[in-house]
Design a protein around this nucleic acid. Structure first.
Length: 503
RNA sequence: GUCCCGUUCGUCUAGCCAGGUCAGGACACCGGGUUUUCAUCCCGGCAACAGGGGUUCGAAUCCCCUACGGGACGCCA
């Protein structure tokens, strides 16, 4: 008897909703639907430092925008809850305890410093960095004494030191990895929260997930998961590792090189059905080679074996073409009008713009030239207007720093944005007035426009970022860009002056 | 560096598993037509089996090696 098909998507709520998440979700959904199964949304918020409620809400909202529906999740319940890992901490610790009792896991008291040293040494010796088993030598009594004395510790997975692990990947067949390559993975952090590996395996099992369909990046840690299933004496699910979406330079899709936020595409005026259609054709083609299809059509004929394994490059040009076809062929004129109104031509958004525009208006005709850039995917820039009186090389530097600094903003609002620029002017020992024209041009493509901080606030980080990048590209094409070396030294200097970057 | 995964036009891909069609389609690009402009639409063109070796009458397809690309190597997921 085969078990009912249950798939899951397990995003970590640590930032803006990512197209990669949507990509995986789409195929998990298609697979579940094709097999009369269910899809679960599980929020993996075991990283207490970075997880936020806002991010969780944003992820749920943007997946829904795309038309991706799940059967069970924190927002709608189900019989296998809770669906938020932070609420399952007790379950996870019980399982960690079980492993400790079995002797398949052990407490580790090593300091970060020691671990770094060991790692560095191994790298130098051209070995795969791996925990050296230092605390494995501790007797149970010794460990207990340390714990009782209040020493901080983590729990590590005991991994065989010889032999190899072979598991089956639904798309690639057998994959074999030496146990020697596998680290004694931390299962429980010193804050008592489980790591991904433990929580993921335990929850997948308890939620009766039959097929784990996830990104290729997980292949190398699958042996850890397989081992956990063995230790717990559970049947492992079927694993299928999908290719990763790529930047044009073939590296893993990243916001530094591509808009990766789902909301970017919404805000830039793409249709959700075009977006999910486009994602569906990354690495997959319907048996009849149709290019225009809905999630429902994708699901009806979905065959996971048809996935291609080479990482597809996320190409804006084709997405744009596809979106155009939806606009022209799939929607009626009335529907397009309605969508346009829903998008940005609604009283709420116009109402937010108006207070900034009104003092500058003499008649309605003035409105569009003034505020049009808020509706652009990005404005067309002109080199000499862009740099104005500023040194071109300074311009590149400021734009880059601005990008890094804006990414640090926890809550995107006018005041926090203004603060970034105040701070930047101070650190760069320039007057705000001197550096701002550059950003007026970058954001609006003009120096006759709305107040810059409010404009940025209205645009949102994603749309601001692409403008910064466009400006940077223009400068580079005029020979005023940052060289690889220049970027490196700028980053170093930046860290000193502004603190670490956030990725 | 070590291990794992991958590789068909610039890009997304069909074909591969069950060897035998001028390697097909789409985006982009170029050219032509329709359109009072532009866009749409239509027609045409450019363009790929990473390299080498094997198996075979025959290899994009099966096997091996090399190269290249990617991913993983965190008290992130």
């Amino acid at each position: 008897m085969t078990r009912p098909v249950r798939t899951r998507i397990a995003p970590s709520p640590t930032g803006a909703p990512h197209v990669g998440t949507a990509y995986m979700a789409l195929f998990n959904l298609a697979f579940a639907q094709k097999n009369q199964g269910k899809m679960v949304l599980r929020i993996e918020d075991t990283d207490q430092e970075r997880s936020t409620k806002e991010s969780e809400e944003a992820i749920i909202q943007s997946l829904q925008w795309l038309g991706i529906e799940w059967n069970e999740g924190p927002d709608r319940g189900g019989n296998f809850g809770p669906y938020r890992q932070s609420e399952r901490k007790g379950i996870h610790s019980e399982h960690v305890q079980l492993l400790l009792d079995q002797g398949n896991a052990y407490p580790c008291f090593c300091t970060t410093e020691r671990l770094n040293e060991v790692r560095a040494k191994q790298m130098q010796a051209k070995e795969t960095p791996r925990y050296d088993g230092h605390c494995l030598q501790l007797s149970r009594e010794e460990s207990q004494r340390k714990i009782d004395a209040g020493e901080k510790y983590v729990v590590r997975l005991k991994v065989p030191s010889e032999g190899q692990c072979t598991f089956n990947d639904e798309l690639r067949g057998e994959v074999t990895i030496d146990w020697k390559q596998i680290d004694h993975q931390i299962l429980q952090k010193s804050d008592g929260f489980p790591t991904y590996h433990l929580a993921n395996v335990v929850d997948d099992h308890l939620m009766e997930i039959s097929h784990v369909i996830r990104g290729e990046e997980w292949i190398s840690s699958t042996p850890k998961h397989v081992l956990l299933y063995q230790y717990f004496k559970w049947d492992a699910p079927v694993f299928a590792h999908l290719p990763l979406l790529r930047n044009p330079d073939k590296s893993k899709l990243s916001k530094r090189k591509n808009p990766t936020g789902i909301n970017y595409y919404r805000d830039a005026g793409y249709l959700p059905e075009a977006m999910s259609n486009y994602l569906g054709m990354m690495g997959y083609t319907l048996p009849d080679q149709r290019e225009i299809f809905s999630i429902k059509e994708l699901s009806e004929s979905f065959d996971i074996k048809r996935m291609s394994l080479g990482g597809p490059i996320f190409d804006l040009a084709k997405l744009k073409w596809l979106n155009g076809r939806y606009l022209r062929e799939k929607l009626t004129a009335e529907e397009v009008v309605r969508r346009l109104l829903e998008w940005k031509l609604n009283p709420e958004f116009l109402g937010e713009i108006l207070p900034h525009a009104l003092p500058r208006l003499e008649n309605f005709s003035d409105f569009i030239p003034l505020a049009g850039f808020l509706f652009d995917e990005h404005p067309v820039l002109d080199f000499s207007s862009l740099i104005g009186k500023i040194e071109p090389s300074d311009a590149s530097k400021l734009l880059k720093i601005c990008e890094w600094e804006l990414e640090k903003i926890r809550s995107w609002d006018r005041d926090n944005i203004a603060q970034v620029f105040q701070n930047m002017a101070e650190k760069e020992e320039k007057k705000l007035k001197e550096i701002l024209p550059l950003f007026f041009q970058t954001i609006s493509g003009s120096n006759v426009s709305l107040p810059i901080f409010d404009s940025m606030n209205l645009l949102g980080l994603d749309l601001v970022r692409i403008r910064l990048r466009r400006a940077l590209e223009l400068l580079a094409s005029e020979g005023a860009g940052l060289s690889k070396k220049g970027l490196k030294s700028l980053e170093k200097q930046y860290r000193l002056q502004y603190g670490d970057r956030i990725d």
